[in-house]
Deep mutational scan, measured.
Amino acid sequence: ASVAVIAAGTQGNIFATSALRSMRFLQILRMVRMDRRGGTWKLLGSVVYAHSKELITAWYIGFLVLIFASFLVYLAEKDANSDFSSYADSLWWGTITLTTIGYGDKTPHTWLGRVLAAGFALLGISFFALPAGILGSGFALKVQEQHRQKHFEKRRMPAANLIQAAWRLYSTDMSRAYLTATWYYYDSILPSFRELALLFEHVQRARNGGLRPLEVRRAPVPDGAPSRYPPVATCHRPGSTSFCPGESSRMGIKDRIRMGSSQRRTGPSKQHLAPPTMPTSPSSEQVGEATSPTKVQKSWSFNDRTRFRASLRLKPRTSAEDAPSEEVAEEKSYQCELTVDDIMPAVKTVIRSIRILKFLVAKRKFKETLRPYDVKDVIEQYSAGHLDMLGRIKSLQTRVDQIVGRGPGDRKAREKGDKGPSDAEVVDEISMMGRVVKVEKQVQSIEHKLDLLLGFYSRCLRSGTSASLGAVQVPLFDPDITSDYHSPVDHEDISVSAQTLSISRSVSTNMD
């Protein structure tokens, strides 16, 4: 405001104040949320940038038409019409005319000016109207692209899951042992070998009828009888010197917790746990005396209480009078009846079946994303299906024409109403129809010849004498029936064969 007042002088105070007050009108834009329509302006900018070359070309040609039209109309009207006294007036008329506004304040009066105005109007309006069409088509394409992008975003994750499931299904095939990355992934998420051994031990116990592997080994086996189970490696608790092959000598807290839970599941009659010990102070733990958990001091820290809870689970003690015997301790020893080589084939089979199920689920979810969402998608899918159906029908028609023997030239002739090819031409065609016709002709010829021969033979049998045999009239074959199959017997006289037959029969009768 200060700059405006200084620039306008003393009389500019009122002007500056009114100008600043008129800017209050811009507050109405906040009512229509114009300040939060950044996406709309961004869309407009992207459309203009995408079609910038077309817009520049249309505007450039339109500007050239405007300059030439205004100049030529000015030359034609400057002497006869006072409205075109300057080139600026003519340029104003050209702008209003070519933009199809047409105020009518300035019009050419001479015939030359009117002809020039009409010609440049028809030429220039087309170029001035091009930017509107370019922007409209650009907006339509952009909206369609955003629509497809939205659908693509919805299909991206199911497609990625389907590709991942397909690759993992491919890589978990037993015949592709060189693909090891997927197996490394499952090695990292699978439970430890100790848990798998416990699982298979329970399965084997159920197969043995509820007997433990130790009891199965204690059962008497006759001499020479084959053992029911192959000899396997035996594993004891981590306190002993022997372990399962492939295990580490260090046992983690999870393994100890699972070991304690498995020992508690063996039965309360074979294992008696004394009350857990509780320390009397955060600094020292008295293991010899058993106290109640309700006497825990409230001033303990979080670490002390955590250690106390761990001691409740991981440090059970047995009383002296209830101490288990050596046999019970041997039964409680952890027996590992299986090795990694025995378990891994079954584990890989389970993983393979899981990968198949996940692949089928991913495939079903991806197919669900291909379903249409709204009416536009339904129409688009219907149009695509219609085009596909037309293509299939056209391909089927082409194959039928190839089989029947109607080529493209014959199809055009039928469409024009011309006469089709004759039967002889159809026979000569190298097509399925021509071959079928040729075979039918040959079969008819053979059938006719057989009928003639059978009739001749029956007449010979009825006559009974050589004289009557020679008097029999043998009809000749019709050459038209034989089609294109020409037998060497067709052109010979059958009477010669009949005479030869009669001579042979007379000779045979004389010999008798």
Rank of each mutant, 00 (worst) to 15 (best):
C244R: 14
R250Q: 05
H202R: 01
W300G: 12
R459C: 10
S227T: 10
Y457H: 12
K416N: 02
R313T: 14
Q271L: 11
P279S: 15
G385R: 15
S353T: 13
D255G: 06
D428A: 04
G252R: 11
S468I: 08
V375E: 15
R256H: 12
L469Q: 05
D418N: 01
P238R: 14
R217W: 06
H491P: 05
E327G: 14
A424T: 07
H202L: 05
A225E: 11
L211Q: 12
K419R: 05
Y334D: 05
L314H: 13
T318S: 05
T339R: 12
S506W: 04
S495C: 09
K441T: 14
S301I: 14
Q397R: 02
P238L: 14
P231L: 05
I430S: 14
T241S: 12
F200Y: 13
M433I: 09
I354T: 12
S319C: 12
D388E: 02
N208D: 13
K449R: 03
K376Q: 08
L199V: 09
P282Q: 07
Q297L: 02
R399L: 12
V340G: 06
L198I: 11
S504A: 06
E321V: 02
D322G: 01
F456S: 14
L452Q: 15
S504P: 15
Y457N: 14
S261N: 04
A165V: 07
L357P: 02
R237G: 07
A225V: 09
P408T: 07
F477V: 13
L338I: 07
R168H: 05
V221L: 11
S301N: 03
I379S: 13
P279H: 11
D173N: 08
I446M: 11
D480E: 08
D341G: 14
V443A: 15
V507L: 03
Q402E: 09
I343T: 11
E368K: 09
V287A: 02
G391R: 15
A166D: 00
S299G: 08
V439M: 12
I257V: 14
F359Y: 07
Q444K: 06
D377A: 02
Q499K: 08
S249N: 09
K367N: 02
L312Q: 14
G267C: 13
A274P: 14
E331A: 06
S508R: 04
A467T: 09
S319P: 13
K438E: 12
D493A: 06
K254I: 05
S431C: 09
E215Q: 08
G210S: 11
E429A: 13
F308Y: 08
